[in-house]
Amino acid sequence: MRSGIVTGLKSDKVAAYVFVLPFIIGFTAFILFPMLMSLVFSFTRYNILTAPEFTGLDNYVKMFTDDPLFWKSFQVTMYYVVFSVPLRLLMALLVALLLARPSRLSGFYRAVLYLPSIIGSSVAVAILWKRFFASDGVFNSILSLTGLEVSIPWLGRVDTAIWTLIILSIWQFGSSMLIFLAGLKQIPQYLYEAATIDGASGWTKFWKITLPMLSPTIFFNLINQLINGFMAFTQSYIITEGKPLNSTLFYTVYMYQNSFKYSKLGYGCAMAWFMVIVVGTLTALLFITQKRWVYYETTED
């Protein structure tokens, strides 16, 4: 009997490792090791065909001081993030508030409005977008319905091309919307009832109850969308190819070009690490400031 228990304990310990081992191996092999390797490569000149050659800080120096396209792509990405992330979240929140009203059709509405999120990042939609915003495209036809007879080549102009991508991003508000909807459902009804008794207006209820109670959800969505925003690739790569005049050249696309088109993998690694640091810092800042604006009802367990 005793020996049975002992072997049981033993096998429990072993079993624990058997269960988590896939993750430990996978994380080490496909994430930790590549990340470290990329840090090392970022100090080298490497074209994959010949052995990497140590060049110290050269890649970083070139990046910051001698590569206008690096800053251009960084600036384009920042512009994209600054507009697309808040607007997408705002859209998601507004639609979630709209759909929070219980009705027999709400499941149907939810499905329809979530659909763009499901297919929005596909190549299919990228092709559609190209046609939609062409100078003789549907978007101009829609505008002409409102009396604006224009034939603006939205994708061909420096000031508008990036906005077609921002609109595409806002259009995919679906998954944030679903998370907001779930968050809204968690707000206890009695808070609203108490506020109604106190004579609070709908507007006050929104600012004093809905928004604070929803702040953890907003925080979660914000972090997610921020990372997503910085990493946008397919849209720029397929729809605009960075054109015109690099006005839509996303950071990830430029990183891709450097690494796989010009075979400057060391430089690409340096770019990747710079991005990790930027996004990591922003995320950390959000986490630090969350105490000021994110309201948690219960303490963490």
Binding site: F30, I31, F33, P34, M35, M37, S38, F41, Y46, I48, M231, F233, T252, M255, Y256, S259, F260, L265, G268, C269, A272, M275, V276
Partner: peptide, 9 residues
């Protein structure tokens, strides 16, 4: 995107 280059190598 952050991992793609070292993973490729």
């Amino acid at each position: 995107q952050v991992l793609m280059i070292p993973q490729y190598i």
